[in-house]
Amino acid sequence: MAGHDDSVSSEKKSSEAVNDIPTFNAENMQNNMKAVYYSRTFMSIMGGVIAGILGFTGLNGFIFYFLVMAITSVGLIAKAGFSIHSYFDSWNQIILDGILGGLMSFVLFWTFAYDIVHIF
């Protein structure tokens, strides 16, 4: 989400008006995807710790996970200035990518925090 994407974004936006010439910089795209991946991983770990400390069990925890992921998506969209198409190819990339990948980390840290705080 670095500022150097701005030139890409402005160019892209103006090109949409008349004809669709793709003016994407592959490296910047990759950088954006990486940023999404990192924030998702971070949020899944943090969400796991929070869920564990709050003592969620069963379905509640998973609902909490998807809530956290939804919040992350909203945050990422806000960070992109609500103009997704200047940074990403499609909505899927910002909303759906990496949700299941973070689940394992979430479960691990959820279990860890829950065990430390609650069951002993």
Binding site: Y37, Y38, T41, F42, S44, I45, G101, G102, M104, S105, V107, L108, F109, T111
Partner: peptide, 13 residues
């Protein structure tokens, strides 16, 4: 085993 699989995300961070 759980640790082994779940820590991958943490390592990437």
């Amino acid at each position: 085993f759980l640790n082994m699989f779940g820590l991958r995300g943490l390592f990437s961070l």
